[in-house]
Design a binder for these strands. Structure first.
Lengths: 232, 232
DNA sequence: TAATTTTATATGTAGGACATATTTTAGATA
DNA sequence: TATCTAAAATATGTCCTACATATAAAATTA
């Protein structure tokens, strides 16, 4: 009775069919735009009901692997890596551990992102960032209202992701925002300090303007020190 | 007729129901383990057929938001952020642009990861990494066979992700491996050079042993130089 | 030939029926 | 009474049929 007996196969039919279809697509090297066998044909070939096939295709459709039009049938599309994540990236759905992982991920990304920023920055980016920083500095609410501070914080860092020129990275960040917001409110609840490193947003813009990727990376690391120091 | 007419809403019923259920879960702050109304009840309340509800729930089940047992019904679970990505992370399914984004993401992660490594490393980690490096150095195949070199490359870097102590990051990396593999083979196909920076794996281990997070970060950046120099 | 109507077809939705697993209840046995 | 056993109840899992709907393709008309 050492441990448990083998579960044989408690995988649902839908899941099996989903896998089979995915394998089918990979093996046959389908190109984006190619059309797929119809639902009834798939159902017959796989030996399952059309319902099962439809549920499987519904999943693949959600992931962007296939698209379907009314009479044309289904055809291959380029899957969207983030479409699955997008739906569940919510503090009310995720567990504490996942939230912590995501928060750490943010720190990793922003420190590691420096090289991309220097490869792809242009003059208008620096101007726009400076505008955000100036607006932040001149906003009287910033001294008193936590929400206002958070809003500027998010606007500034969001712009950096946009600058990275990596659309996936950028979208990923924008859907991480609710989690950031939640985590930073939790932080500011536990400790009353404003949570700033010795490097300000203004310093970061200046580094971006006339510094190096290496300097920006270390300055960003410094800027995020309050968050890093919370890690165990 | 400036642009297009409004598309009104051609969102499928399944998608609408999926959203409604997700909203329902968020609003009511369901805790993990709470049980959900049954399929028939949901179908009646939403005014749709049970099929639609089942397709929606099938999607949520795939994302890990809910689980279902035969007689008990459905209950809330903590969603897995990566379960959606996992299925489609394949060079045969993704487009060129997505692959490029992912490849860049890898570079960003490994440079930014340094701090986590130094927070969570322990002695055995350094020993294990050194073992990998030694094995690599003494393997005669390494000089001639590209696949062997790639295997050591992947083993070494994979261990770093494991060291990060961030399970999400680690799993993410492991599912990125097929894409890495593909991209690096493409790289080595276009140019015959072995593609190494001036910092070796051995140097990285030494830095991890007796250096600082700052030094490791810059050494990693240096180690990855051949890849960075390919970016536009 | 070009515009229009018709038709055919694959997906989208609905609803009913039965299978299956598991909890609960009821029953039988000691 | 206590315990083990068998039956019923119930929610998900699977299958089937029918019809709605949109639209590409064919047929018809101007």
């Amino acid at each position: 009775m050492s441990s448990k007996i083998k579960p044989i196969k408690s995988v649902s039919l839908v899941e099996q069919v989903e896998q089979r279809i995915l394998e089918f697509l990979k093996e046959n090297r389908f190109k984006s735009g190619d059309s797929l066998p119809g639902e009834i044909e798939l159902a017959e070939n796989l030996g399952v009901s059309r319902n099962i096939v439809r549920e499987s295709l519904s999943r693949l459709r959600m992931l962007g692997v296939v698209e379907s039009k009314k009479r044309k049938g289904m055809f291959i599309a380029e899957p969207d890596i983030l479409s699955g994540i997008e739906r569940i990236m919510d503090p009310d759905l995720l567990g504490e551990e996942a939230m912590q992982h995501i928060f750490e991920l943010r720190l990793v990304l922003e420190v590691g992102m420096s090289e991309l920023l220097f490869i792809r920055k242009n003059d208008s980016d620096v101007v726009n960032l400076q505008e955000i920083v100036d607006r932040e500095a001149n906003d009287p609410l910033c001294k008193t209202d936590l929400q206002t501070r958070l809003a500027y914080e998010i606007e500034f860092h969001s712009y950096l992701y946009k600058m990275s020129g990596n659309g996936t990275l950028n979208r990923f960040q924008s859907m991480l925002l609710p989690v950031f917001h939640y985590m930073m409110q939790q932080e500011s609840k536990s400790a009353a300090e404003p949570k700033r490193g010795s490097i300000s947003h203004n310093d970061l813009v200046e580094t971006l303007r006339s510094g190096t990727a290496y300097e920006f990376r270390e300055n960003m690391r410094n800027h995020l020190t309050p968050h890093f120091s919370k890690l165990s």
